[in-house]
Amino acid sequence: MKKIKWLLTVCVMACVTVKAQDDSMKKIREEAAGKLKNTEKDTTGRLWKKGGAFGLTFNQGSLTNWAAGGDKLSLSMLATFAGFANYKKDRHNWDNNIDLAYGYVNTTSLGTRKSDDRIDFTSKYGYEIGKNWYLSGLFNLRTQFTEGYLYPTDSTKEFVSKFFAPAYIILSPGVDFKPNDEFSLFMSPITARWVVVMDDTLSAKGSYGVDTGKHVKSEFGAYVSATWNKEIMKNVTYKSKLELFSNYKHNPGNIDVFWTNLIALKVNKWISANISVDMIYDDDVRVFENKETGAMGPRLQIKQTIGVGLTAKF
């Protein structure tokens, strides 16, 4: 009888010990799960989102005893970089984007010429005042890296641009409509724009609309900027940016247009193909000759490139 009581006591104590251990382990698991959940919440709710993509395209061609004719050797290189740093907290939204591009082409008949050259930086702050609507302020700077030339003939060239000659600076308060992360429409009826030509030779000619001998021209007008970045199908992304500016001070009906379009086709992690089309119309750029009348005036400027190369995203 005593042995039976002793065995029952041991069993009861063992059950109590196991139950206490189970309760203790359950509490530990719950605490660990809570910490993991908080960690995941902190990670996904970060205030800054940053990233970018670097691309390098290289093309080469050569002809030997080619009856149809052509350049014996042609080489081209294009480097691009697109980066962003965006901040969002409560009603505050701050987007920063930079687009850089630089390219050269070399042929045996024409020599070395620049094929692309772009610096484009935009910073936009917005405070949410309604669903998808933000009271915003925008800053934009657009210029280039190195000297640029026009080629009236194959053997002559004319110096027409360089770093900060020209540069376009925009400072604009307005409203921003952002229904999602893919599309943004910024509108402002009161925008200040400065055209900067920091080269004595070009300013002496009154290039890009500045007064002769002056380096800066100030303009005041209306400004609209629309951006769209969307994956239109699997591994195919379309990015577009359209800017319109009307100068209240001079010919407000002649609207300046700057429109960039890029289609990126992803082949694999490192290789992609890009198709880009840029269009510019600036009424103050009167360096193009009408062959029928001989008069100089503005023209729609179009640049188109196609390339396949290496892409690195981070």
Rank of each mutant, 00 (worst) to 15 (best):
Y223G: 05
F220A: 14
Y208A: 02
W194Y: 12
M25R: 14
M77L: 15
V160F: 07
N274P: 02
K217A: 10
I170G: 00
T108L: 01
A32H: 07
S62Y: 10
D200W: 06
D199R: 04
I170E: 02
L265T: 13
L150A: 11
L300S: 06
Y149I: 11
Q144S: 05
M279H: 09
V308M: 09
A53E: 10
A273R: 01
Y168F: 12
Q60A: 13
N59R: 10
G51K: 03
S115A: 07
I119C: 03
M187E: 08
P179N: 04
A20C: 10
Y127R: 07
V12F: 13
V18S: 15
R286H: 05
D71M: 03
G209V: 02
K178G: 06
E158C: 05
T80S: 09
N247H: 04
T57Q: 13
K291N: 08
S246K: 08
F220V: 14
F314P: 02
I275E: 06
D284V: 03
T212W: 04
G34W: 04
T305W: 13
L242Q: 06
Q301Y: 03
N93T: 15
K266I: 08
K230P: 07
R193K: 15
T80N: 11
S109I: 09
D23Q: 13
K5D: 09
S24K: 04
N59Y: 09
